[in-house]
Amino acid sequence: MIPKELVAASAEALILSLLSRGESYGYAIIQEVRARSDNHLQWTDGMLYPVLHRMENNGWIKSRWVKMENGRKRKYYSLKKDGKTALDEQRNQWLKVHGVLSQLWGEQYA
């Protein structure tokens, strides 16, 4: 299991990356992250929502309520232009971290 500090640090990058593929809602975001990480990356579910709301406050994403066929409502999030810029910045930062670690581990285990 990945420690919660690392999960928290990567939350924005994960959400931005997922939303760059199309709009989604909280539950689906959590399920997809869980599935793609083979259950290693897990939030306390509720903790996703303060992150989503902060990103919406930052102007990175926008949301809309959608009424489902069963009468219930779902809040869908999608990426805004500033969110794409934020995603580019975060991708560069994570790739740099990844590059340094790969380089070090490459030397270590070569």
């Binding site: 306390t44 579910d45 509720g46 303060p50 992150v51 902060r54 406050n57």
Partner: peptide
């Protein structure tokens, strides 16, 4: 249980404050 405790959530939502 998965959603988590209200006090922890409240603390996280309180950090958003900023813009408003």
């Amino acid at each position: 249980r998965r959603i988590g405790r209200s006090d922890l959530l409240k603390a996280e939502f309180a950090k958003i404050g900023g813009r408003h």
